[in-house]
Design a protein around this nucleic acid. Structure first.
Lengths: 224, 224
DNA sequence: TTTCTACGTGACCGGCCGGTCACCTCCGCT
DNA sequence: AGCGGAGGTGACCGGCCGGTCACGTAGAAA
């Protein structure tokens, strides 16, 4: 069925190599600090070749890369973390499921430092330059949709407190992001002041976030 | 006692005008997108004058501005939100105190759109370029110290769950930041997809964050 | 072997921007 | 009024970078 010619396969490989190089450079220098020359050099192509594959240049590279990371990264992790809808029908089950999600997200970003760094430095462009790429905006919303569904299910079953689901989804992702940023900060500068976050196993990180966010910061013996 | 000459007062006024202009431009364009020419124009000075007041140019403007916002903004809001240490000795009191803090932070940023926007777009530089200004790093840490103290007090009194205090402080600030970003996003593009956060009164925002973070997302009747 | 096409290449261009500095104005002093 | 200097000014410079395009090449077709 799909018989991509060798030509086509090679074209895809090169495209991927360019995106990989772009990721490394964007993560290190940020969008404005990155130069197309450096991306081309890292990918071992001439600058002109980059423009063959991405006629709109730096912007196109950036958007394509974000899209790939969002769809192939975040979305996949979230989807795979809720294999069983029934699990969400009890508080303990919901806690387990979201703990697993958070842990997967942390593990995912441990493997992909550069992706994390790029999200931290340039993620705000997804919010403020949403008009740049309707496709990216759509994919980005799909990620949150994938998270809103289980949250709503857990709320409907009484496992989670009744709250607007989409803001809760953003809250959750924001917490993971915030924690990873603090961790990275501590890791980059271990000699510095007291750490903003301990750098432990992904399970430790997930414990911390899940406890704070799901059990709450207030002492548990005070809950109604 | 302090009798600043008219000269000195005028100098301070001009400095402030430059910082105000810089804030507006940084917030709109980001650090890299901002030009010294535009800052000078907004402040109604010649470009050279900027360099009289900030010999290190754009970097110096940026760092001085961040420092002012951190010290005069965040730090002050946090300090003023914990007038009474005794309040932190009960869970209900602690909840009230932190709710007040969160509300103050939201209100503060409602008044200072530009400061928020700049923090959202360029805040990562404070973490990754910490070496740029030892003074800023110190002031930044002082902000978290001011937050760690009441958190530790509340933990010591049993009002809050025992957890490492500094990471909790970062978690808290990260949640406020995340919520405000979601709100801003929704406000900029009201026609868009479902809102990431409702845009209500500061009290509503504080209710949402406090409930999620302090009471926990799990349904309350399931707590131990 | 010859030809032709697709495509990789990097020198080059034009605009932009951070930073400088010679000039000039304005104010205070005599 | 005349003088001097503190300091504001913006034209200018040099480097940088995104994007282009005429050229070269390699590989397919004949």
């Amino acid at each position: 069925m799909n018989a991509p010619s060798r030509r086509e396969r090679e074209r895809q490989m090169r495209r991927q190599a360019m995106l990989a190089a772009a990721l490394a450079v964007f993560a290190e220098k940020g969008f404005d600090g990155a130069t197309v020359d450096e991306i081309a050099e890292r990918a071992e192509f001439g600058k002109g070749t980059i423009y063959n594959y991405f006629p709109d240049g730096k912007d196109a590279l950036f958007l394509a890369l974000l899209d790939e990371l969002v769809v192939g990264g975040l979305h996949r992790v979230i989807r795979d973390s809720f294999p069983d809808a029934d699990e969400l029908s009890t508080p303990a089950g919901a806690r387990t499921a979201f703990h697993r999600l958070i842990r997967s997200l942390v593990e995912h970003h441990r493997d992909e430092d550069d992706a994390l760094l790029m999200f931290l430095k340039e993620g705000h462009r997804m919010a403020f330059d949403a008009g740049k790429s309707a496709l990216l905006a759509e994919h980005f919303n799909a990620v949150f949709d994938a998270l809103v569904v289980p949250i709503e299910a857990a709320i409907a079953s009484g496992a989670l407190r009744p709250m607007p689901a989409r803001p809760v989804a953003h809250l959750l992702m924001g917490n993971v992001r915030g924690y990873l940023m603090a961790e990275l900060d501590a890791r980059c500068d271990p000699s510095a002041t007291l750490p903003a976050a301990p750098y432990g196993t992904p399970a430790d990180a997930a414990d911390f976030i899940t406890t704070a966010l799901f059990d709450g910061l207030l002492a548990s013996d005070s809950k109604a």
